[in-house]
Each structure stands twice: as C-alpha cells, then as structure tokens.
Design a protein around this nucleic acid. Structure first.
Lengths: 189, 189
DNA sequence: CTGATTTGCCTAAAGGTGTTAGGTAAATGC
DNA sequence: GCATTTACCTAACACCTTTAGGCAAATCAG
C-alpha cells in the first residue's frame, strides 16, 4: 500500500492540467484518481467534494491570470498598458483553455471577495488612470473593458469567429485601437 | 401503460424550461423523464442522447433570440437599432438564463451553419449599415459588438458587476452610447 | 529502537446519470 | 377485426459521486 503523496495542492494542479486537456467540465474526481493511480475515495481526504475541486481550480486560474497581468502592466501606461493587459487574457485563454473556463465559474460572494478577482478589477482601474475618466465613468469603462475582453476571448475560443476573413489577430488589434480611441474620447451622457 | 404523448418537440421545450429553472448544465435526461412521469429509457426513442437534447435546446434558443432580434430591428436604424438589438440579448438572458447559456454552447460547424446563428450575424451587419464602415472594418465591428453584448450579459448574469454602484442599467446605457459614438467615428488603422 | 498515534490510502456500498437491448400493449391502417 | 407500427416499459451495464469504516505506513515519545 505504497503512499503516493497526495496533497490538495498537487490535486488542484493536476486538475488544472486535466481541465486544459479535456475541458473544464470534463474534470472529474474519478479521472484525477486514475491519473494518480489511486482509488477515488482517497481523494476525499484532500478535497471536500467535486465542487470543491472545481472551485480551487478556478481560484488557481484567477491567481495565475492576475500574476501575469501584474507582470504585463509593470512599467506600462495608456494604450500600451491596455494592449498588454488584454493580451494576457487572450494568451492565457489560448494556452490554458480549461483554466480560463474555470476562471469564469461563478463563485459565491465570500469566495469571490477573497479571490484574485479583486486584483483584476484593481488593475483594470489602474489602466484607466492613463485616461481622463472620473467616476462614475471609470466604473462604466471598467465594465466595458471586462465585457470586451471576456466576450471576445470566449467567442474566439468557442469558434464564433472561425474560418472567416479577416483573421482574428487583425480584428483583435483593431478592437484594441478602437477601445483606446474610445477611452480617449469618452462621450458625455 | 397509458401513453403520455412524448415528442422530440415537447421534450426540447420542457428541457428549455428546465434549463431556465435549474441551469443549463443541470439539464438531465433523468430529470426530464421525471417531469413527464415516464421512465428514462422512454426518452431515447425521441432523443439520440443527452448531448442531442442539449444541442436541440441550444438551437431553439438561437431561433427564439433571432426572432426577437428581427422583431426589434424592424423599422429601426442607427443607434436606435443598436440599442434595440442589444436589449434583446440582455432581456432574453434575464428572462431565460438557461436558454441563453444554451445558446452559447459550441456547435459543430455543420450544425452551426444550419442554425439561426447566421441570422444573428446578418442582423448585426444590418445594424452596421447605419454607420459608415466598409470591409474589413465592418467585420471587425461585428466581432466587437458580439463581444461586448455577450461579454456584458454573461458577466452581469454571473454576478460580476453585482452589488457595486453605479447600477448596471446606467452602465449598460452608457456603453451603448459609447459604442454608437465609436461606430460613428471608427478609427483608421 | 520500540510502541503508540496519526494519517494516507484502501475496500465496500449506496445512490444518481447515461445508454442499449429487447418486450408488451396501445394506436394506426387495411 | 386483424396486422403492423410505435410508444413506453423492464432489465442490465457502465461510470461518477460520496460516505463509512479498516489496515498499514509514517511519525513521534520515551
């Protein structure tokens, strides 16, 4: 009965990899057990249940994303910061589709408040400091940016833009330019 | 052994209602059977399998959404059309969260091509005729609008904007104004 | 180093979902 | 009124989730 050395940490990391390979909603405690060559029930010493696993994968993804975004923002401002930030999301989603999907799962308010999600909101606000917006327009703009980034990435990954000219990279660049222009000339109500 | 009168049609409609009540990914063949007071296996005469049910719910949602959008667009142009179209999405998602989620599921290319999804793209292009965009900018704009609408609605429904001032209705209006302004002054590359 | 304790992984079992194969009775058609 | 079709059923299997209780490996006390 050799011990494998399971920990919540290792399980969550493996779960994240599994998500990237087979899709977040195909992540299953059983498959995870199989990968560690261990019986399913053994995982329940480290995880409360299946939902717990998924939540922890989501939190991991949010952390990784926030870390990357913070890195990308360092030393940048204005359109430069905007593009760097946006590209972090898009690149992360492409590299880690399962983790990205995980990051979109609805968390209960308490968990969300303690997650890296708040860093994301702060960083978006930081970017907007490079533009001339005051409250409440800044909040409107935060929400717009979140919508565009999330919406674009999820449509692109879902194949919504597939196989049609012009290519999506071109569209992405033009959208970032358009957003920059919009933020520089944000219309009065 | 009284016959209940199951048809694929009725099952899909009931599935859509079930989705709105309990969430699209909680839609299960078993629960559907329970609602018709029928054994699970009986559904397999009308549905290929569970995935087939979900796909058909998605197609139904896409149709309904396209019908509403077409209605809303009739007789409108410019910003008026833009707002009406956008509101159809937002309202539909609020009234029918399960169906809306269904409408986001990835369809295989053949199914997608035969779905009401193409009408959505056509209507978006129709709206853009009210602005002065030529290809390929029109395509970029189609993608931007899709991203914003989908992104905003899914973030709002996921609770991403919850409990923070200003309220989301205000943001939504301002975003529509901003998009209108952006489309009227679409930046050159 | 030995014995006690903790703890990691196991077996067993129960309940839920998905799916297929084959039967019976109700509806339909000649 | 009989033959055929078809709607729904029972039975069975496979897989996932979760809990309860057991044994042996790791850890710790002395």
């Amino acid at each position: 009965m050799a011990r494998v050395g399971l920990t919540t940490e290792r399980l969550v990391r493996a779960g994240a990899e599994l998500a990237d390979e087979v899709g977040f909603d195909q992540v299953t405690v059983s498959e995870l057990a199989r990968r560690f060559d261990v019986k399913v029930a053994s995982l329940y010493s480290h995880l409360k249940n299946s939902q717990d696993l998924k939540t922890k994968i989501a939190l991991l993804a949010l952390e990784e994303l926030a870390d990357r975004a913070a890195d990308a923002l360092a030393g940048r401002a204005g359109k430069d910061a905007l593009a760097a930030f946006a590209n972090v999301y898009r690149d992360y989603a492409r590299e880690h589709p399962g983790r990205y999907a995980a990051a979109q799962t609805r968390l209960d308010p308490a968990t969300a408040a303690a997650s890296a999600g708040v860093r994301h909101a702060q960083m978006t606000r930081a970017i907007l400091r490079g533009y001339d917006l005051t409250e409440p327009d800044q909040t409107h703009a935060v929400r717009l940016l979140g919508s565009v980034f999330h919406g674009y990435v999820s449509l692109e990954m879902g194949g919504g833009f597939s196989h049609s000219a012009p290519d999506t990279q071109e569209t992405w660049s033009r959208i970032l330019e358009a957003l920059d222009a919009l933020l520089r000339h944000w219309p009065a109500p």
